[in-house]
Computed example of a mutant assay.
Amino acid sequence: MPVSRIAVGSHREVYEVGALKAALAEFISTLIFVFAGQGSGMAFSKLSPDGAATPAGLISAAIAHAFALFVAVSVGANISGGHVNPAVTFGAFVGGNITLFRGLLYWVAQLLGSTAACFLLRFSTGGLPTGTFGLTGIGAWEAVVLEIVMTFGLVYTVYATAVDPKKGSLGTIAPIAIGFIVGANILVGGAFSGASMNPAVSFGPALVSWEWGYQWVYWVGPLIGGGLAGVIYELLFISIRVMIDRVSSSSPSLPSP
């Protein structure tokens, strides 16, 4: 069961060289992702009067985020697992695949990476606003549900292609599958909630711009969605499979007639 595997770990983990290297990898991967993803929105806003509010802007944002996440996950996968997202880290934690202390270290690195990316974007564009996530035409709780569903799909994809021990050769396409689901979700939810699916992605622009409207939506929704995906996949498709395999291997074979 996933709950039985949840581990707090030790505070000493945050001083271990391996954990610090993993945190640095998460920082760099998140910086790469947010710089490209948020920067594409800033560039399109500069080139088009209506910016990302147009269909072309939405498609551009989806493509930029899909490509950037594919790269960010790829470069971090062999070091930290390439989470690049507090919701993914939370999903891994509730599924028993990362300790609490290591997960918190990842969170700090991801939030710092996003913030650094937004500061760099503002500096390198002559002070252009980075933009923040907001709601368009829907209420806060509708946005929460939207973020839950989209993040569930994202973290479920992470589990199926990267975490599942039986993933086999499917693991080689994990980064591109993860990028694709984020790009597809942006096409669905981008016009309503901005399609964050990632508390770090919404935190960095909010901090740099100091605009915190509906920021809680982009924490509550993704964390619930990521947590549900982690528990459901781990419980239904990993833990049960392991139990069945154990029962099968311990069952005595019938003698030949």
Rank of each mutant, 00 (worst) to 15 (best):
V17E: 13
R12H: 12
W107A: 04
A140I: 06
I176T: 13
L228E: 05
P199D: 08
P49F: 08
L24A: 15
G134L: 09
V8Q: 12
S74H: 13
A87P: 01
A206H: 07
A87Y: 05
D164Q: 05
A19M: 12
L146E: 07
L236P: 02
I148P: 05
G153A: 08
A61K: 01
V75T: 12
Y233G: 02
A56S: 11
G225M: 04
D245V: 01
F93W: 13
T136R: 11
A23Y: 15
A25G: 13
A68P: 04
R5M: 09
W219D: 06
I176P: 04
P49M: 10
P252G: 11
G221V: 09
F237H: 04
N78M: 12
G9R: 05
G37Y: 10
L235P: 00
V75N: 03
P165Q: 08
L254Y: 14
A174T: 11
G134W: 07
A87Q: 01
L20H: 04
V8D: 10
F35L: 15
S250V: 08
S4G: 14
P222G: 07
S29G: 15
S193K: 05
G171Q: 11
I232R: 06
I232H: 09
V208L: 02
I224V: 13
L236V: 05
E211F: 07
V75C: 07
P2W: 02
G18A: 14
T30F: 10
I98S: 01
R122E: 09
L69V: 10
V71N: 02
Y218L: 00
